[in-house]
Design a protein around this nucleic acid. Sequence first.
DNA 1: CAGTGGTCTAGACCACGCC
DNA 2: GCGTGGTCTAGACCACTGG
Lengths: 244, 244
Amino acid sequence: MTDASPARALGFRPLYLQVKESLVRRLIEGSWQPGQLIPSEMELAREIGVSQGTIRKALNAMTAENLLIRRQGHGTYVAAPEESRILFQFFRLVRDTGERTFPTSRVLSWTKQRAEKEEAEALDIAATASVWRIERVRYLGEDPLIVEYISLPARRFPGFEKLTDIPNNVYRLYSERWGLTIGSGTERIKAIAASAEDARHLGCKRGTPLLRITRVAFDLEHKPVELRISRCLTERAHYLSDLK
Amino acid sequence: MTDASPARALGFRPLYLQVKESLVRRLIEGSWQPGQLIPSEMELAREIGVSQGTIRKALNAMTAENLLIRRQGHGTYVAAPEESRILFQFFRLVRDTGERTFPTSRVLSWTKQRAEKEEAEALDIAATASVWRIERVRYLGEDPLIVEYISLPARRFPGFEKLTDIPNNVYRLYSERWGLTIGSGTERIKAIAASAEDARHLGCKRGTPLLRITRVAFDLEHKPVELRISRCLTERAHYLSDLK
DNA sequence: CAGTGGTCTAGACCACGCC
DNA sequence: GCGTGGTCTAGACCACTGG
């Protein structure tokens, strides 16, 4: 309608993608908070000055990336790091019976240290930067299943030392305390033999085959936020991956 | 459109989904062959009697499921089981260097036998049905990487015994010889210790930790077509999984 | 009932690839 | 230039939700 977009000769970018980016920025900057109901399509269309169809295409694209949740007859919400969603999107270890349950955690330690080379590379920080390290054991019911080592770039988590405990759902912690939303991740899996330390934590023999899952989790700007190495027993559970 | 008898309150099916299903049927029945250029949006709209926009939504949904490939200025093609696509969609083992290359294969045997319980359950066939079993070792370059056991329901692969060899890309074989298109799959991963047989094939020690990947692959009707158990060395490679 | 997102249509124009 | 898929718009109607 109001064709007020002159510079489109070179470097073409569809309008709905520009709209999407400006809306994602609202999420990044926190003007739209997780769980919040956002304005309706019509309101956004009026505000931004494009048609409802263009808004819709932007919102649907964001929904496909798990950034929004749309409910007919209700409205559009900012996706929140709820356990049920985390469980499906980020937790791929499933009991052999098929149940998907969120594991509980027992935190062993959290300390601030100089980054190791692997951490610095994965988190894209200086080799001299410091990281917070969390070490915990995770259980499915009574059974220890995972020994987990989480590394966080200290610069992006100011005041981390003031925490009195580490909750089970750390992605909600990142979101609520530092406004960091985890939007995507990559996992690399190898088979390894349990170390003496693994054996102690998991109650298995040394040398037992384990999955070692190396995850890098990214925020909405696709910058790495977390490195997580999980060493998992797979006697009663398995890693589930959909090919589609 | 089908079950039109009971309450419509919960039985609503959007037009574009009905269109999509009728187009998918053309793929299943083979009236559209892999690699083929299909009619343009305008032609399909005229033929089916809906608007171009509805056709577009159906085609885009199919493209999102990797059934079609659309190229602006060119047309819409039926996706073919090309190596590059298979590599990206179905082969998740990546060299630690980051290279994604299609492994080569050395076939050890293919035989027809009575299904084991695990095979019958995964393939949803009778406990007394017979299956074709393929056993092969796969290599990245010179290095043996995977011992692979493939099971196929014999009823869906008539004339299998006439094969003189098994090509590396079996999904293309299924497609070209039996018109079976693999559209999706599920993988379940555990860590195991190499058996004596694994050790012989992979050139590793007995007890070396391996990934055991159990894949069930489905056709376009979501019926299971293949059970594949891969036992993988992960010393120079890893399994890659994207969380999004 | 009003308001939301979801579907469907129709027409115009744009970017792309090939002749 | 022509035909393709891709974008954008506008308006109508449908299905779902809650007050």
